[in-house]
Structures are given as C-alpha cells and as structure tokens.
Design a binder for these strands. Structure first.
Lengths: 183, 183, 183, 183
DNA sequence: TATGAATGAGTTTTCATTCAT
DNA sequence: GATGAATGAAAACTCATTCAT
C-alpha cells in the first residue's frame, strides 16, 4: 500500500473511532507507523486528509448510483434500499465520518450536500417511474423522495451506530412499501 | 437571568452553531459578557457545561413523555409524531447539540441513551395498544417501535439541519400510518 | 474564637497538611466556614496569613527562651534538648510550616533566620557556661553550638516528619552528652 | 547536550533556586532557550520533570552506596560521613530539590523514602560491624543508625542551606565518633 | 521521500484578590 | 464586619504545522 493510501485508511479508522477533533496528527502518525512530517508530504493539512476521505466517498457513491441507473428500467423501492444499505456496509467508516463531521467542518458539509443531492435526485428519478406506473400512493414525488431520503439516512445511522436494534432492513423495506406504494 | 442560566443559554447557542470543540471557553465568555473565570465558578469544566445542557434536555423530555402518557388512553401515531416534533421545535438547540455530540463525547452518549430508552419505551407502549386493537400491520411491536424511533430521529434531523426540504410533518405522518397501521 | 484567630488556626492545620501553595484561599475559607472575602478583612494577602503564623511562632519562641534563661544558672544539655522538644511538640503545626516554607517564601526565611539566631545565641550562652566549668570536650563553643543547633533541627524533623523512627529523645541526649561533654 | 538533558539541568538550577511551584514551565523554557511545547515532547508533565531529577538522584545514590559497600570490610564512621558529604556536594542541586519537595509532592516523597531506606540500611550494616568489634557505645544498632541518619541529613542541610555556619565536617565527625564509639 | 524535534499560538483551568451588597 | 460572585492574569498543557537533516 502506498503511503498516501496508508494514511487515508488509518485516518478512516481513527476518525470513525474517536472523531475528527480527537484524532491528532500525532496519533494518526503513530497508528500508521510513519512520522508526523510524512502526513504533510501527502496532504496540505489535517483537514485535507478528511476532505480526501470524503471526496473519495462521494466519487464511490457517484459510481454506485451510475451503476444502479445503468442496470435498466427496474428501480424498485426494495432494491434501492437493499443496495444502498449494502453500499453503506462496504463504506461504513467513511460514511460514519461524513455523518458526524458535516455539521462541524465546512469542507465536510459540502461533500455531504453533494451526496445528498445525488441521492435525492436518484430517488426522484426512481419514484417518478413508479408514479408513471400509478404505483405511488397519493403523495408528491418530491415529498416521497425526501421521505425516502431521510428514512435511508435513518436506517444508515441505525446500522452504523445502534447495531443493538438488530437488522431492521426487512421490516423497514416492508414499512416503506406500504407507506409509499399501492398494493 | 442568573449567571448560570446565562452561561447555559449562551453555550447552547454557541455549541449548536459551531460545535462543541470550536466553542472555546474564551468565546463563550465573550459572547456571554462575562470573564472566563466565571464559567468555572458555576461549572466544573467545559464538558460540565455540555452535560448540564443535555441533562436538562433529558429532564424536560422525561416530563414531556410523562405528560403524554398521562393524557389518557388515546395514543395515536399521528398525535405522537406531531407532539414530538413540537417538542423538538421548542428544544431545538439542545437537541441539535445532543445529536452531534453523542458520538464524540462520552457524557453526551449517556444522556442520548437515556433519551432513546425513554422514547423507545414510550413507542412500545403506544404501539402495544394499537396492536391490542388489531390496528397494527403484521410487524412485531418491537420492530415497529424501532422503526418509528429511527424515523422520528430522521424527521428531527430534517427539521433541524435540512430545513430546505420543507415541512415534512404531514406527509411523514401519512407515510407512517400507511406503513404501520391497517385502514 | 475571634475570626482572625479562627483563620490562623485553620491555616496552620491546612498549610501543615498540604503545604502553602496547595492551600488556596478558597479551601481555607471553606474549612474555616467563612467566606473568602473575610480573609481579606483580617489579612492583607495570603502570604500575610503565613507571616502572622510564623511571627507568632517567633514570639512564642522568644518567650520560651527568655523563660529558660530566667530559670537560673542550670543549663544542661539534657534539659535544653528536652525542653526544646517539648516546645516543638506544643507548636508542631507552626514549626512544620516554618521548616517547609523558609526556603520557598522570603518572608518565611526572615522568620526562620530570627528563630535560628535566637536559638544559636541561646546555645552559645549555655555551652559557654559548660566550657567555663571545663565540661566541654575540646571543641570550640561556636562549633559545638552549631552542631547542637543542626542536631536539634534534625531531631525536630524526625519527630514531625518521620515518627516511624520512634522516639529518639533519650538516645539522642545520650549521644549529645557523649559527643560534647567530658565525663 | 541533548535537549532532554538541557531541560533537566535547567530545571535543577531553577527549582533549587526558587522552588518547584515558582518554577513555571514558561520560566523553565525561557532559561533553557527552548519553547514551552518542547518540554512536553520530552516529559509528560511538569511533575514528570521533577520525578526524573529525583529518580536520577536515587539511581546515582544507589550506585554510590554499592561502590562504598564494595570497597571492602572497612566501614568507619569517619569515612562514611566524609564520603556522603562529598556525594552531597556533587549532587547538591538535586538533593536540595529532594529536601524541599518531599513533603509537598507525592512523587518526590516516594523517591525520598527510597533514598532514606537505602541510607538507613547502609548505616545499619556499617554499625553492626562496629558493634561486632565492640566499638559501639551502649546504644542499639538501630538507634545509632537512626541518629546517624538524621545527623547526616542535618549536616547536609547545613552544607546546602546554611553555608554561613562554616564547614562543620571535621567537628561533626569528631562529635559522632565520641557520641557513638568507644575509644 | 521521510523523519522527528521544535515551535508557538491557542486551549482549558486555577486562584488570589476585589467590590457591591 | 461579612459575604460570595466576579474578575483577569497567569498557569499547565495541546497540537497542527514547519524545517533542517
């Protein structure tokens, strides 16, 4: 693994464990078995490390959504949620970081907004299709997209932060179908 | 206003605006028009200020839930969500603080867990009643409670952090009723 | 007890227990059940409290020496040491304070010097008498006085700080007599 | 000189001059011509600097005693005192610090106790030999060891803090021999 | 590229002292 | 005389960043 990647991976672990402010450049260097100075050979600042982690997440998510949309016309609520939660699982560390930093650090907020915009747009597209098929309950596509959006974040947080609640995926999918779609 | 309350109110503003770590005792003192030393006459440490804010929120929430449960046998999903969101509005600053600190500061996590336990218990009680009346869809009371729990937090976050999404209260209530209850 | 005395007595306890720097005006006020401001009604500063304690000790010691010298021509080494150690016991707190502060606080050093001068002079007078009676070993009166002086301080410290060593009074007196006097 | 040693040497000077509490990290850094932060690269805390000074003294003293005991069976009171006072002269700063801090700072007390234990044990061994040769006056070995112990500390303090008294080494040795040993 | 010692501005915290009541 | 809240200067300590090697 290249040094730069090593720093990023280590930072992901550390920040998701203890938070951005409690992750010091000293602790990061120690955990990665490099010197503090080396961090600054690869990144402009501590915040820059964070930005790289989040920008990378944003890019992965962009590819993920592209992949989903390219799969064809099928775009069911079930599938959408299931796949998203799989994405969450694969990118849990970076997502954890995004969710706790976007209110605290400006550069993180921008990335969060980009992800949210992409996600929101994706849901709108999918739900518009369902609406065309008259499968949507009487709710505006936009409201439905927003509700789906925040509900997905809720599930994400449940998965990442409250694993004690158990795996809510299946009942949640059922709940969403009933809540949004006609039989 | 007593100095102690002044400090707490100012801290609520400041922390909810810029976060706990960026709120320094110096900035807090300046905003409250007191000296830094005065903070330490009333609180043991900076973290103690945070704990007071959150413990106070926990107490308010306990009273709120007690009030709801005391209102009588009526305990509909509609009402539950509406009242909770009103509570959120009235305590928006402290709730914002709780939501961004509970993953970062141990003492905040404890308060969060207390609030969640109370809320979860409340939802279980309410949904058990709906279940007795055979109004609950085929979903376990516990799963339903958990889903309601995380969805309420999602709505709270939407209200506090993403006001651009507009007021989702009514569509969200409809969504929940459809998702959880029979006609 | 007058407030001023109460403060002095409490300060003696506290300073001899934890030292001058760790004795804060807040802890002193709390232990004495008065307010911090009250200390400043009776003393100019925290150091002034210390000075009063030590000046008082100095005065007591002056009276003590006067008493000894007034007792008549008898002035044996035995008696001198025994009486001094009794004085130490009666004024243990203030002496403890003097012994740990005289190197650290200027005003304390002055008092210590006064006590030492008085003590040294007293020993010189006594030993000069012994010398006139040809009871002193071949050692100058001054050297003998100095040795007695530092040995007395050593015994004092042993009594106050190393009680585990047991009561060394009697063997110490024997040691001194053998060391300084002819049979 | 390495920075760590520079800090230790400077701290020795400063603390022995003005005391531990009046030695601030700022004054230490200034005197050593380094920044305050540098102190904390080499030591965990201000107290840790003190502990290093005292632990180092303890180690030196251990080596010194080992050296003395290894010199062979000769172990006369004269020699013992003379050598110890030479040790005091060579380590005057650290010893000064130990003598004024051991009542005030817990970690210093521990080191003092270690030194005292070593010293006490050493004196017991030596005096037991003198006793075997029937050279000891009628005094228990333990009492004699304790008296020698406190008398040595008295001489140490005289040397370090009351140089005005002149060099008492020779009369003090004579005094001890007469006080403890038979002709 | 990598190091790691050094920096210094910034942070929390302490505490003797003051002063309006 | 007594109070105790408020002060502010100074203390210990932290940490992102730099730079000579």
């Amino acid at each position: 693994m290249k040094t730069k990647e090593l720093i990023l991976e280590t930072a992901k672990e550390l920040i998701s464990e203890v938070g951005y402010h409690k992750t010091t450049t000293a602790s990061l260097a120690k955990r990665a078995n490099i010197s503090e100075g080396t961090i600054y050979r690869h990144f402009e600042s501590k915040e820059d490390v964070l930005v790289h982690i989040l920008k990378d997440l944003d890019a992965r998510y962009a590819r993920f959504v592209e992949g989903l949309l390219g799969q064809g016309p099928i775009c069911l609520v079930d599938e959408m949620l299931r796949q998203h939660l799989a994405f969450v699982e694969e990118n849990s560390l970076a997502i954890k970081i995004m969710l706790v930093t976007y209110k605290l650090i400006d550069s993180a907020r921008e990335v969060m907004e980009s992800v949210v915009a992409r996600l929101s747009n994706f849901f709108s597209v999918c739900l518009a299709k369902e609406n065309d098929n008259h499968r949507l309950q009487d709710i505006s596509v936009q409201d439905a997209a927003h509700i789906l959006l925040i509900f997905l974040f809720a599930l994400t947080r449940a998965k990442l932060y409250w694993p004690d609640l158990g795996d809510l995926t299946e009942p949640a999918i059922l709940f969403c179908r009933r809540g949004l779609l006609r039989e």
